[in-house]
Design a protein around this nucleic acid. Sequence first.
DNA 1: TATTGTTATACTCTATAACTATA
DNA 2: TATAGTTATAGAGTATAACAATA
Lengths: 136, 136
Amino acid sequence: MRDPLPSLPGYSLRRAANAAAAELASRLGELNLRQVDASLLILIGENPDVTASALGRQLDIQRANMVPLLKRLEDAGLIERKAIDGKSQGLTLTAQGAEITQQARTMIERFEAELLARIPAQHRDHLLPALDALWR
Amino acid sequence: MRDPLPSLPGYSLRRAANAAAAELASRLGELNLRQVDASLLILIGENPDVTASALGRQLDIQRANMVPLLKRLEDAGLIERKAIDGKSQGLTLTAQGAEITQQARTMIERFEAELLARIPAQHRDHLLPALDALWR
DNA sequence: TATTGTTATACTCTATAACTATA
DNA sequence: TATAGTTATAGAGTATAACAATA
């Protein structure tokens, strides 16, 4: 079939992102985590007592949508909430959450290394700077 | 906030793809098209009498999900179906569909050019080959 | 007045299973 | 037996509006 779409960077960007996301989702599934769960756990681990609102701003997730995401992590025993003041809650990893987060980080690092390994060497180091220019 | 995620190519891939998709969606909205509509119209224009199943295979969209997509394009008067044999239907653009498709292609080409222009020159030509290695 | 956390809700996208009819 | 088109449905993901309580 004639298909001019793959020559478009924006189209290839979406297809590559979808392919990578599907593969990572499959691997993180072994830890009963989705990508967004892993992102939240990593950020909470790096920023103890961070608030739900701050996490949402960092990940471009709206406040209202953070509620079920955090509830899921809390129900799984991976994070804890404690009141900072009357209206804010600080989030931290539980011991179990820290352990799962470390496993997820190891898994993600391996995945990222494998992703890069698929890219021909002469293009490899250009991917991240090029992507950064598109969203940061 | 400490955030190690942007250093991960897979994460940046998703963020860049989302940012690009949101912007293109906004522009195509002026033509009352979504990205998937534009992709379908372009492929149908390039491949007259293509079947719904073949389109789905090319775009990794399942047969069942093609039904509402094509119905929408047909209801908008952009595509037509005519029986190839007892079970297959050939899809073609209507005159109006061809016109809208041309407008979409012009819009997309401008968008793609602007995307590439944002990437520093020394990285620009590496993006598409790097992405291709991740999904093709 | 702005922000935090929350509830409720709706819409889109996608995945799965099943069915009919035809090649 | 495999394929094309379709229907129905369920699950994610996301967007919007509104509310109470607090900074």
